[in-house]
Design a protein around this nucleic acid. Structure first.
Lengths: 192, 192
DNA sequence: TTTTCGACCGAAAAAACAAACTGGTCAAAA
DNA sequence: TTTTGACCAGTTTGTTTTTTCGGTCGAAAA
C-alpha cells in the first residue's frame, strides 16, 4: 500500500514521455508497461484505463504549469506586474510544453470527452486567475475594468490566439514584443 | 466570347454552394458540371483545374467581405469609428460565412499550397488595413501606438482568436460585448 | 470560330477481406 | 498485495481489387 503511489507516479512519468512523443492514440499500454519493466496487465492494477493514465499525465503537467505561474506571480507586487508575469510565464511554459501540448491538441482525436472536459475545466481556472488579478487591480484602484469576467475571457482568448499562432510557427515573439502588447492592454491605443 | 464571363460566374456561383456544403475534397467536377447542366469536360473550357474553380470561389468570397468592410468603414469618420466598424463587420460577416469558412478551414486538407498561399495573402491584406487605420489615427493625433505593424498583427491575431472561439460554438458575442472589448483596446485597463 | 460533349487514361481513393494489434479481463502465481 | 500470462472482442493495419475522379483530346454542335 505504501508504494502504490510511488509506482503510480513512476508510471505517469514514463507515460508522459511516451505520450509526448507519440500522442495518445499511438501510445500503447504495452509500451508503457515494458518501459517500466512490468506486464501490461500490471498497469491495470494502478489505473482503470488508458484514459486514466493519460488524465494523470495531463493533470501533472497542469500542476507544474500552475506552480510556475503561481511562483512568478507571487514575486510581483502590483497587479500590472502580476498580469505581466502571468502572461509571460504562461507563454514561455507553453512553448516548452510545445511537443507535449501538440500531442494533446494536434492528435486527430480531439473528440474525446475527457480531453474536452479537462480543457473546459482548465479554461475556467485560467479565467478565474485572470479575473482575480483584474478585480484585485480594481480594488486597489489601479485598474478600471467594466466587466471583469468578460475582460478576463477576452484576455484568455487573445492569449490562445497568440499561442496557436506560435505553434503554427508563424512568428517568434520576443519578450519585448510581449511588453509592447501588454502596453496596449494596459494603456490602450488612444492618446491621452 | 461575350458570355464567357457570364458562364464563368455561373459556374463559380454553383460551385460556391457545393463547396460550401461538401468542402473541397468531396466536391467533384462532375457534380458542378451537372448542376449547371453541362458535361464535366465543358468546365475545362472555362477553368484549367478544380483548384482554379475553388480559387475563383474564394476570391469572390473575399471580394464580398472586402466590399462590406470597405463600405462600413467609409461611413465612419474617426479612426476609432473605422476600427470599430472593421472589427464588427468582420465578425458579423465571418459568422455568416461560417459554413463556407469551415469548409475551408476544417477540411482535413489544409496541406494545399494554394489555400495556404491565399490565407497568407489575405492575412497580409488585413494587417495592412489595420495598420492603415492605426497610422492614420497616429497621424491625426488620436492614437498613440509604438509599433504599428506589430500592434496590427496583434489585433488580427486576437480577432482570429475570437473567431475560432465563435466557431467552436463556445460563446455568442453581442455587439455590446464587442464594444466592451474595443474599450479595452482603446483605453486600456489601467485607471488614469 | 466558339462551345459542348463522350470516350478515354492514369493516378488516387474506396471497398473488401484477412492478419496483426491492442485495450481490457481474469484466474492463478508470486 | 502485487504481478503475470493467457485470453477475448473489437479495431487497426496491410494488401489486393474495384471504383471514382481530375484531366485530356478529338470530334460534333452551334
Amino acid at each position: 500500500m505504501i508504494d502504490v503511489e510511488k509506482t503510480k507516479s513512476e508510471i505517469v512519468e514514463i507515460a508522459r514521455e511516451i505520450f509526448a512523443k507519440f500522442g495518445f492514440k499511438k501510445t500503447t499500454m504495452d509500451e508503457i508497461a515494458k518501459a517500466i519493466k512490468k506486464a501490461k496487465s500490471s498497469l491495470y492494477y494502478y489505473f482503470q484505463s488508458k484514459e486514466e493514465v493519460f488524465q494523470a499525465v495531463i493533470e501533472q503537467e497542469a500542476d507544474l504549469l500552475r506552480e510556475k505561474i503561481e511562483k512568478a506571480m507571487s514575486q510581483e507586487d502590483t497587479p500590472q506586474g502580476k498580469l505581466r508575469a502571468y502572461v509571460i510565464t504562461r507563454m514561455k511554459a507553453l512553448r516548452q510544453l510545445a511537443n507535449f501540448y501538440s500531442a494533446l491538441k494536434d492528435e486527430y482525436l480531439e473528440n474525446f470527452k475527457f480531453i474536452e472536459k479537462f480543457r473546459r475545466k482548465y479554461d475556467e481556472e485560467e479565467i478565474q486567475t485572470i479575473s482575480k488579478i483584474l478585480s484585485d487591480g480594481v480594488k486597489r484602484g489601479v485598474f478600471n475594468v467594466k466587466d471583469v469576467e468578460m475582460t478576463a475571457l477576452a484576455i484568455l482568448i487573445a492569449l490562445k490566439g497568440f499561442e496557436s499562432w506560435i505553434f503554427q510557427g508563424n512568428i517568434r515573439w520576443s519578450e519585448k514584443d510581449i511588453d509592447n502588447l501588454l502596453d496596449v492592454l494596459f494603456y490602450g491605443i488612444v492618446k491621452k
